[in-house]
């Protein structure tokens, strides 16, 4: 009997040692295994692959925090289609800012056949989340050009920041307006939290709107954060803000941009 106990104990113990990837140092350890700096690499791919396209079509998803199953299903659905050029994630990849959350969601998104980029959401800023986001995905403000359209991706989570770190970053916006002007003739602005939302610095909402309207032919803006589908001309100036539902609703938006117009579609799965 005692020998049996000994045997049982030793086998369980050795089995456990075997699964040594089960060692968890700390929920906010910032220990990142696997792919890093994904946005930068994928933007190069998007800019290269679709450089001469007149028409581009992309999926816009957002707020997938703690909806791993739903995000996984989204990836399966998009991979079955062959008309989506790339995917933009509107932020809130993590719910609690845990290092593992970023990696779980990254590993799901990595199964996408098409390139993707992710924005910083307010939940991604919790604890040391922003440090993890910057390592795994990249800087909170960035832009890329697909076809002839510049996608200006902005951090708008002002509530998560303080005055030492400008949100939105107007100097970045001004700089981007004059950057690569020969390569784009229309603009789309992508953000996590839209003007008027609890996260946005609403004191500068109209200034923000003015500054993005200085870009060549601003088509529309898109956002996440509110977890519902939105289509609203917030500033009554003809610029529509399209909000995409959280991925937990099993919904996302598809935008198609052609030479002289754009269309959008709300997809449920």
């Amino acid at each position: 009997m005692k020998k049996l106990y000994k045997f049982l104990a030793l086998t369980t113990f050795s089995l456990l040692i075997h699964g040594c990837n089960m060692f968890d140092v700390h929920p906010y350890s910032g220990k990142i295994d696997g792919r890093k700096h994904i946005n930068a690499d994928n933007m190069i791919k998007i800019e290269h692959d679709y450089a001469n396209r007149d028409t581009i079509r992309y999926a816009f998803i957002s707020d997938s925090q703690r909806w791993h199953d739903e995000l996984d299903d989204f990836v399966k659905i998009v991979n079955k289609r062959n008309d989506i050029d790339f995917i933009i994630h509107g932020g809130d990849i993590s719910d609690f800012g845990l290092t593992k959350e970023f990696l779980w969601q990254r590993d799901i998104l990595e199964k996408l056949k098409q390139p993707y980029v992710a924005l910083l959401g307010n939940h991604d800023c919790l604890a040391n989340g922003e440090e993890i986001f910057e390592q795994v995905f990249g800087t909170p403000n960035y832009s890329f050009i697909a076809g002839k359209t510049k996608f200006l991706c902005l951090n708008t989570n002002a509530l998560e920041s303080d005055y030492s770190n400008p949100v939105p970053d107007f100097s970045f916006i001004a700089h981007e307006r004059l950057q690569d002007t020969a390569h784009f003739n229309q603009t789309v602005v992508v953000m996590h939290a839209r003007p008027t939302s609890d996260q946005f610095n609403n004191n500068v909402a109209s200034v923000f709107q003015y500054s993005i309207k200085q870009f060549p032919k601003l088509l529309y803006c898109t956002n996440g954060h509110d977890h519902i589908y939105q289509e609203e001309d917030i500033f009554k100036d003809g610029i529509i803000y399209y909000g995409t539902p959280n991925i937990g609703k099993r919904q996302f938006l598809i935008f198609t941009i052609t030479k002289d117009r754009y269309t959008h579609e709300l997809v449920s799965y």
Binding site: L16, G19, C20, N21, M22, F23, D24, P27, R66, W67, H68, D69, D72, D95, L98, K100, E101, W104, I108
Partner: peptide, 19 residues
């Protein structure tokens, strides 16, 4: 970890249980 684990079939035992 537990709340993430129980709500998602995608996450496996060793994702949210540590040693």
């Amino acid at each position: 970890y537990l709340i993430s684990g129980v709500q998602n079939k995608y996450l496996k035992f060793d994702d949210y249980i540590g040693l």
